[in-house]
Design a protein around this nucleic acid. Structure first.
Lengths: 123, 123
DNA sequence: TTCTCTGTATTATAAAGTATAATACAGAAC
DNA sequence: GTTCTGTATTATACTTTATAATACAGAGAA
């Protein structure tokens, strides 16, 4: 698992970890059921506290992206519910990104192409 | 200016204000050169502290979205630089939204249609 | 058994970010 | 002068974030 953390970012570390894993699952870099690093292992590797990784894993578990087992550790949820509705929060985040890129001069077609590429990105 | 603040959100108030204005400019709700509410006025209206609004305006000014004048107050920058490159940060935010919606079961075509609608949204 | 690994929980602490409050100043408009 | 503007300063309180040091229960391996 590639995990790039930006300690000077305004995004909290635990959220960066959470985001990396979500993106990894969506891109196929992490496959359904795949074993994730242990909390302690990832904390060591990333140079952060165990509880910071734990916070990320707890959030991912609560969101249904991963499952945890005291025996085997954490795994990507082998059966993520792809029938759940996206929230208004996602739409608002999307609106914001589109607004910012629009004001950077990105045209609709350029933007859609960027999205197409990201959508099709495989590991 | 419509301004909906969610005080229970994990997004700071000053950032919500900043985001609302960015979206407003991009959608055309706020036009180039248009006068914005005064810091004190908006603070009163929104029920927040003056310095919170000031923080949002300072950020918007620094980002080039608005200009300020001690005489007239703050205005939408009449000449926003639409030739500036979008940052990697925007791409990462976009990747995250796409990932989350993908994992909610949204197909590529559905997603592109949502984007098209947002992109064309006028006030 | 004993040892080691897993996620989880607790408690304490430090540091940073956020928001409020009360003022004050400089510049321009009236 | 008075009033408005953005801006600046200082202090305070609260929340969030991250670390640290432990500890526990359950399961696997020696």
């Amino acid at each position: 698992m590639l995990l790039e953390l930006d300690f000077s970012s305004d995004t909290p570390i635990y959220m960066q970890i959470r985001n990396s894993i979500v993106v990894g699952i969506a891109s196929g870099e992490l496959s359904a059921g795949e074993k994730l690093p242990t909390i302690r292992g990832l904390a060591d590797e990333a140079g952060v506290n165990m509880m910071t990784v734990n916070k990320a894993y707890s959030l991912l578990k609560q969101e249904g992206y991963i499952v945890t087992d005291r025996r085997n550790g954490a795994c990507v949820n082998p059966d993520i519910n792809t029938a759940k509705a996206y929230g208004e929060e996602e739409i608002n985040k999307l609106k914001l990104v589109i607004s910012e890129m629009k004001l950077s001069g990105v045209t609709e077609e350029e933007f859609l192409n960027i999205c197409r590429n990201i959508f099709r990105e495989k590991e």
